[in-house]
Design a protein around this nucleic acid. Structure first.
Lengths: 213, 213
DNA sequence: CGCGGCTTGGACTGATCAGTACCCGACTGG
DNA sequence: CCAGTCGGGTACTGATCAGTCCAAGCCGCG
């Protein structure tokens, strides 16, 4: 099919194609069950190129994990602005509801769950990767959430004594069951967006009730 | 070393030894990374015996998962009695505290976390195993917890409108962060029992405050 | 215009590993 | 004490797979 030398120079596109192919395959079948032959073939690139670009399979995995981890930081970055949108105490519930909905929808996506499965499953072999992902995706988001709550508190919009604790409580009340179910029950459909929104609303209401506004 | 025929007849002890060896190794290194040679050697049994007993590696994995799943049902079985111990409204907090402490200590153990890592990591290859484990360990426990709360409600000891929801809320407020951290951060020490108890107490207090007793 | 470094397809190696064939020693019934 | 058989250990097989090597084509740079 492909005549040699057809692919553009510079390695960049080949690297990109390899990364996305490897990501897809690792997420679908796992690290050990995915051969480098298949990765190269899926990327429409020779195996030699794969090894030129990444050195070995382990480095390829780390590169995939790095890309995925970077992507996982996206939600936290949107939080400062979202929290800043609250101007009066009456806005707080709606702002939190929006944040909770987005957060829950972001996490309850098949790819995100597959990433968690992959990273957790390989945590024994790649402890540093698992730690890095957790730092970025979980700890980072909780920190941003805590900062937002602190922001609300200092502006007198919400009484919060321990923002870090409150952020953790809110996050896990929101995500806990959805994540857990999603991790184990691979074949079953995820909750619909409407169901997720309803959950987000309920959790936010309970959260606010607990520190009785 | 081992003279042939020394091992007792009937295969039972060999099967047991293989199961525990396989469990240990799968939990430590994962399914794919554990060879049947190593399992047999660790069990001090020949590879032939392994294949006589289990047929193939996949069946061995299922057997391990089955044993582990059965063990995971233990906590739920203790719940009816624990809930029954509450006689007056004043007892409720202490009873719940005891349950929460035990639950949290049970889950926050290295073996339990390793099981979750293994099962989740292999969920793509063994969806039925993952579902079975989730049914037994998670859904089953939540059901037992919900039943206990219903029990308290019908005896007028605790106002609960939706026991299943309340059980889920309580469980994930309790376990969420500990589980999450434990799954990803393989190498870091787990919370001390004292820290876990403190968390259990705090969560139970918040749980009761939310339905203001 | 040609050189060097990139690519490709493909064949190859060496290791690992699931699963099997076979021998030998031990226990059982007689 | 002997014959038959059962089960365990050893050595093997066949497949898979990470990683390498090679011959040849294409491109930009000098």
């Amino acid at each position: 099919m492909s005549t040699p030398g057809t692919r553009p120079r510079g390695g960049e596109p080949a690297r990109e194609a390899l990364l996305t192919a490897a990501t897809t395959l690792f997420l679908r079948h796992g690290y050990a069950a995915t051969g480098t032959d298949l990765v190269a073939a899926t990327a429409a690139v020779s195996k030699q190129t794969l090894y030129n670009q990444f050195g070995d399979k382990e480095s390829l995995f780390r590169a995939v994990a790095g890309a995925v981890t970077a992507r996982a930081q996206g939600f936290a970055a949107t939080l400062p602005e979202a929290f800043a949108a609250a101007a009066a105490p009456a806005d707080v519930e709606e702002v939190l509801r929006g944040i909770a909905r987005t957060y829950l929808r972001t996490v309850a996506r098949p790819e995100v769950l597959a990433v968690r499965r992959l990273v957790v499953g390989e945590a024994a072999r790649f402890p540093d990767v698992a730690r890095g992902y957790h730092d970025a995706a979980v700890v980072g988001t909780l920190a941003a959430l805590g900062a937002g709550l602190t922001d609300l508190a200092t502006r007198g919009l919400l009484p919060v004594t321990d923002p870090a604790q409150a952020a953790e409580d809110l996050a896990y009340a929101l995500l806990g069951p959805v994540l857990d179910r999603g991790l184990f029950r691979v074949e079953e459909p995820l909750p619909t967006p409407e169901a997720l929104d309803a959950r987000a609303d309920r959790v936010v209401r309970a959260f606010l009730a607990a520190r009785h506004g």
